[in-house]
Nucleic acid binder design. Structure first.
Lengths: 214, 214
DNA sequence: AGATCATCTTGACGCCGTTCAGATCGATGG
DNA sequence: CCATCGATCTGAACGGCGTCAAGATGATCT
């Protein structure tokens, strides 16, 4: 039997150590933050020797990539849920943007790993772009649905990139406590997010009417 | 003689080791990237023992903060130069934004240290906000000058934060090679930057006329 | 059963950040 | 001019890190 160990059965030496390591890494990230995420700590948490991970990942970076992949998946799901929350095409981008930043706030360590992995790479992160319902594709298709088929692909792509920049930038800035008084005056975290996003062209409803997303 | 050792003279123990260490760190960053920036490597580069830095910095983080401070200073200067390049108040924000992203592109390792240092801190990075001509204040004053005195402070602050988010997000995304074909069709790097920024409310000229920066 | 092969452990290497006792040497004051 | 002082730097050490090579383990195949 090749496939087993999806549940509690532990058919072999460890079972599905690969998955166990990724889970252990996520647990450490949630509980102790990114600075505590050493390969040895992950192995310790999974109950194996420090060298065991090397039978499933080429090096530490590859393990982190697997963790990041899970993160992009979870982010994509959060964005899907946010998008489906409203049928108004013009409001969807804002909902997605808010969901994005909130995700980064609820899983700050995971979010950091997701971007640390993708830096110094030639491509967009694996899992951001591949599947139909990936995070990136969702934003692009939302823009496409709102803009209509007559808008050029390049403009849709630019709008998608711009929205991504805005959301990521806001996600990083949002952790500064310096902004707390400002947030208080704007109805808390979400009010602040929506206020900033409204400055950032995340309201295609008010921009596209004038000159289109291009 | 207190001040010496700017050139080849090494008058005593070391001279101004603090500055020498910061310079060594910057050299390593430029030549080998952030992953090579260990305290021991910095000490090696400066020609001292691994323990020497501890007489000038509490730990590695404090040395990195000093490096980051230099970075924010240089960024502020680049933004000032960009701002003074045009007298048109409406166009200044775009010039500043382009200069910001270009700085992050010319000094990617330094830029990374600047933000890595400021993460998990309660305040904005030291050197970003303090002085009159700091990077952050320049953006805020540019918005203020453009919007006029009747716009509320909170709106100016929000616009500043939004612009900062946009610039930082774009700075991080800009390194993805995936966007190279897109850039080619938009007149190179700078054309791409301006195109994305035009989606991100960095053109107060076209936005503020409608509803003000608020 | 015996061979095979992926999996896991043990032990080691060099590098890291950090600490501490002691050496070094300008400055101070008698 | 000499003794002392205090700041600065060195040398050696500690534990933790990523990684690797060699050997033990045990599931699977014939």
């Amino acid at each position: 039997m090749r496939e087993a160990a999806t549940a509690e059965v532990r058919p072999y030496h460890h079972g599905d150590l690969r998955r166990a390591l990724v889970d252990a890494a996520r647990r450490i990230l949630e509980n102790e933050g990114p600075s505590a995420l050493s390969l040895r700590a992950v192995a310790r948490e999974a109950g194996v020797s420090p060298a065991a991970p090397y039978h499933h990942f080429k090096d530490k970076g590859e393990l982190l990539e697997a963790v990041a992949f899970v993160g992009w998946d979870a982010l994509g799901e959060a964005m899907t849920a946010a998008k489906d929350r409203t049928p108004d095409l013009g409001a969807r981008m804002t909902e997605i943007g808010v969901a994005y930043v909130q995700f980064s706030q609820e899983h700050p360590a995971l979010y950091r790993v997701m971007y640390d992995c993708s830096r110094d790479k030639d491509e967009l992160p694996e899992g951001l772009q591949d599947k139909e319902d990936s995070a990136y594709c969702q934003v692009r298709e939302t823009f496409r649905a709102f803009a209509g088929p007559e808008v050029a692909d390049v403009d849709i792509e630019l709008a998608t990139i711009a929205a991504w920049c805005a959301a990521h930038g806001l996600a990083e800035m949002n952790s500064f406590r310096q902004f707390d008084p400002l947030k208080q005056g704007l109805g808390g975290e979400e009010g602040f997010l929506r206020a900033v996003l409204s400055h950032l062209g995340m309201f295609p409803a008010s921009r596209a009417k004038a000159n289109g997303p291009g």
